[in-house]
Design a protein around this nucleic acid. Structure first.
Length: 112
DNA sequence: AAGGTGACTAACA
DNA sequence: ATGTTAGCCACCT
């Protein structure tokens, strides 16, 4: 099934406020650890009114790697900080304290 | 229909 | 240590 996007959205939606997940985590949960780019692509296609907490998804190094002009990294950083997430300002990008806020994704049932 | 493009990652040089 | 390269695979031209 091509519900890849939908799965991504559902998975991201399970992340509670105050926590973050990485693209790789989601990709791995969808059984393709290296398909993390697809996760980013999926989030990129989200519209403004989307219920999906896209801002809780960051790179494996805890950096905000967003490249969407409509929603600059600074805005994502603000959204995260509004949830109590510790966001540090780096030279290039913002950095989230993974050890502190990384969320453990719900375990996926094994395939039939 | 076929090929290019990524809001990524991990492995190499 | 930083810079490149290859793999991923659904979506867009």
């Amino acid at each position: 099934m091509n519900n890849f996007y939908r799965k991504v959205y559902e998975l991201v939606s399970t992340v509670p406020p105050g926590h973050v997940v990485t693209y790789g985590q989601i990709a791995a949960a969808l059984s393709s650890p290296r398909a993390s780019r697809m996760v980013g692509t999926a989030l990129r296609s989200l519209r403004e009114g989307s219920p999906v907490p896209w801002h809780r998804v960051i790179s494996s190094k805890g950096r905000i790697s967003i490249q969407n002009m409509d929603h600059p990294a600074e805005e994502q950083a603000n959204l995260l900080m509004a949830e109590g997430i510790v966001v540090r300002r780096e030279q290039d990008a913002f950095c989230v304290d993974l050890a502190r806020h990384l969320w453990h994704l719900p375990i996926q049932e094994d395939k039939n």
